[in-house]
Design a protein around this nucleic acid. Structure first.
Lengths: 342, 342
DNA sequence: CTGTTAGCGCGTTCAC
DNA sequence: GTGAACGCGCTAACAG
């Protein structure tokens, strides 16, 4: 048999269910002999208490909130997660955080299906992944509120999102103000399987700044690839091989900026003396390597998202919207004035 | 009233519970009028379905495994977490990962209490935190199996642990082989509130290596403080201020090594030309900054721990023990032969 | 000390 | 279409 219940145990041990329950709960009022009988029955049947039945019976209520994030090895997800966890601790409302990672984009759909089907969580925080209208309906029909920590939903009240376009603008503007005109962009492919348009948006800001400052756009300065330090490393190498290489690089994430910097150093050039590099995100790593970047308050976005979800779950009316503070340019050591004789 | 049930809704709407359940599950066989009645009743009462009751009724089974980790901003925890998550995905046995972070050491105890009380998980992975014998008993009486990802439990079959002493030895040995004799140790206080002896163990290995190579031990070369980059930064500054500063530093973690390096650079010295630095852990950051370190397979330890727990939860007999591969010295760019004229 | 029974809240047959 | 009754597995209160 698959899952023995206390009834099975009771029958097997020749006692009542009450007695089984008592030994399970370490009630002292059980004679040693019967205790042993029950215990051995439990052992032989491989009995294990049902969590849900117990919770229902005791009236235990703990709200579970699920957080879905892509299984990309990237510090930004960690920071958001930390923010969520922090909010949960502060809320002190015994929420349980259930973590789901989606290894492949396709699996997100089946995950949502199983979450709805199995009624595993009371609310959902979806980080970075975009979900279709069908999936939104699925969740709302199942009465599972959700907030998104994403980029593609400015204006959506249950989405915490930075202004990526503005961020891209800020980054490029910083380089332009330093006198750079040959500015490259290293980022993710615009259309990826996870379908988040982060790279596209930051690129848009970059383009807008170039135009505004009268810097000419060059398609060979735009390098896109899969996310990660390695790809950025490779792309940067190709940039340096150009007959007229850029004097500055805007990497769409700090991790990619690291790849750029490593490639530049390997080519025997210095940062920022020969080439300036600016990243995006301001993950904790960036402070250690003194990277100039654009801070997007990742941890805070997780915090606010969780707060928002908590409100949705506990209040019946409309909830107070949350807004991220504006993006900040963090100038550290990897950018400097363009060297005129380059 | 606190939590309305379908009975309340049914009464309020003037229908039977079956009908309420039907509209909840989008059954088509409900007349539009009654559907609307029920829906408005739900709205007005602020009704929300009970997760547990639903799960019990539908027979949904998903095992939940909890992971407890200290809320220290440290990449090593993230890597272990990733390993656990990876194992869960591979196991494909619909485990749910519930994340608990303990902000203060004292809160670990109450967390365990509440986990046992509320029957929230089927098993537990406890990272880095040590638990008392009382707490062990608590868990075993509650029939909650657990594995530890820790340092203080070599020999314990349900604990995945690297050989920290050996790691400390390897790190110091590497520096000694490079000719260094003035080797400092920067690490955590030996007795901290979380009571994990990592620092002590790595220090022991360091001492053993010093002795073996005939390097004299100097108490002013041993700098202990709270964990983190900032503290290591400060401690290193004091090391450099010594009349006879060390030629090499062994930092007990990569993050602390980063602090050392920053302090050294700020003092106008170079790494590794003037001072060598070796870390410990080999978190992903270390590759980016080309840090020499000791790899301790953090992600794998999470992976193995989860596998172990899964075995305990599914098999009745004894489970196959898991072992971490031996620690590896990863030589990168922050250590080199001692400069004789220093 | 121990067996019996009534809920816990919801899904799901059944008859109506 | 709809309401009533039963069962999910367990705890707790009640008799004995």
């Amino acid at each position: 048999m698959s899952n023995p219940t206390i009834y099975d145990v009771a029958k097997y041990a020749g006692v009542g269910v009450g007695t089984v329950s008592r030994v399970l709960n370490n009630s002292t009022k059980v004679s040693p002999e019967t205790q042993e009988k029950v215990l051995s029955a439990i052992r032989e049947l491989g009995f294990r208490r049902s969590k849900v039945a117990r919770q229902l019976s005791t009236g235990t209520q703990h709200r579970a909130i699920g957080m879905i994030l892509p299984f990309i090895t990237h510090p930004s997800f960690v920071e958001r997660l930390r923010g969520v966890q922090l909010a949960i601790n502060d809320l002190n409302n015994n929420f349980n955080l259930v973590l789901y990672t989606v290894t492949e984009p396709d699996r997100c759909h089946e995950l949502l299906l199983s979450i709805v089907e199995q009624a595993t969580v009371d609310g959902l925080i979806i980080a970075t992944l975009n979900i279709s209208d069908d999936e939104r309906n699925l969740l709302s029909e199942a009465d599972i509120p959700f907030v998104m920590l994403s980029d593609a939903c400015s204006g959506d009240p249950n989405c915490i999102s930075p202004d990526n376009t503005r961020g891209g603008y800020l980054a490029a503007q910083h380089l332009l103000e330093l006198g750079h005109r040959r500015i490259a962009y290293v980022g993710d492919e615009f259309s990826n399987n996870y379908s988040f348009p982060t790279s596209q948006l930051r690129y848009n800001g970059y383009i807008a700044a170039l135009e505004e400052y009268g810097a000419t756009y060059r398609s060979d300065y735009v390098c896109l690839g899969t996310h990660g330090e390695e790809t950025a490393h490779r792309l940067t190498a190709s940039l340096l091989a150009l007959s007229e290489p850029p004097t500055a690089i805007f990497a769409m994430s700090d991790i990619q900026a690291v790849g750029c910097i490593l490639a530049i150093r390997e080519a025997g050039l210095r940062v920022p003396e020969d080439i300036s590099v600016i990243g995006f995100d301001d993950v904790s790593l960036s402070r250690y390597i003194s990277l100039t970047t654009v801070r997007q308050h990742l941890e805070l976005s997780g915090y606010l998202g969780m707060q928002l979800l908590s409100d949705v779950l506990s209040t019946t009316g409309t909830v107070r919207p949350r807004h991220l503070p504006p993006l900040e340019l963090i100038v550290r050591g990897t950018t400097q004035q363009v060297c005129i004789n380059v």
